[in-house]
């Protein structure tokens, strides 16, 4: 494999956190409110992930994302379990691709419950497709420094004599 002993890979204990045990319909059912509830953590993680381009450097942010998601679904379980299950069941069984458009009635019930009990309003249908600006405290990674090659051909000195070409220009048809 390409990974040598020099590459730092985190221990398994560092990577083990309680993971979400939910299926796709449940995730889709909670997606909009989840995205709104954990917007800060999600943006922080995605920015880190895209800027650094290395999963090892964003483990802390990733754990924050998972913790926030767990917290959200725990809250939903406490307050709106019945409505949530109904909505997830509808999403699961109404189409082959978990499409949300088949389940507007149950969605309305769930939205109302979440708004009343958890005070999260459902964002508009394209909210998470919009470009967003995120302000973070994490320092920006430095750009890759310019490569220095020790065996590069040395350039001519500034005051070197530059004679006219002995056999004329190679581009005579363009320059004459």
């Amino acid at each position: 494999m390409v990974l040598t002993a020099d590459v730092h890979l985190p221990e398994e204990s560092e990577l083990t956190v309680p993971e979400l045990q939910l299926s796709s319909p449940a995730l889709f059912a909670g997606s909009f409110h989840l995205g709104k509830y954990c917007e800060q953590a999600n943006n922080e993680f995605m920015l880190c992930r895209l800027e650094e381009g290395d999963p090892r450097k964003c483990l802390k942010e990733g754990k924050a994302v998972t913790a926030c998601t767990m917290e959200f679904f725990r809250k939903v379980k406490q307050s709106c379990l019945q409505e949530f299950n109904q909505y997830a069941n509808c999403i699961d069984k109404s189409s082959g691709d978990y499409s949300l458009k088949q389940c507007r009635t149950t969605q309305g019930v769930f939205d109302k419950c979440v708004l009343d009990k958890m005070n999260i309003e459902r964002p508009g249908f394209g909210y998470f497709c919009e470009a967003r600006v995120h302000d973070t405290k994490r320092p920006k990674p430095l750009p890759e420094p310019k490569a220095v090659y020790p065996d590069a051909t040395p350039a001519l000195p500034e005051n070197a004599e530059k004679k006219p070409a002995r056999f004329g220009s190679r581009f005579y048809w363009m320059t004459e």
């Binding site: 995205g35 993680f45 964003c58 483990l59 990733g62 994302v65």
Partner: peptide
């Protein structure tokens, strides 16, 4: 379609974090 994409993008960070670990 935009709504479905939006829903997927909302859960993507969580899935990515889990996948990375």
């Amino acid at each position: 379609q935009i709504e479905m994409r939006s829903a997927k993008m909302a859960i993507y960070p969580m899935l990515l974090a889990e996948r990375d670990r």
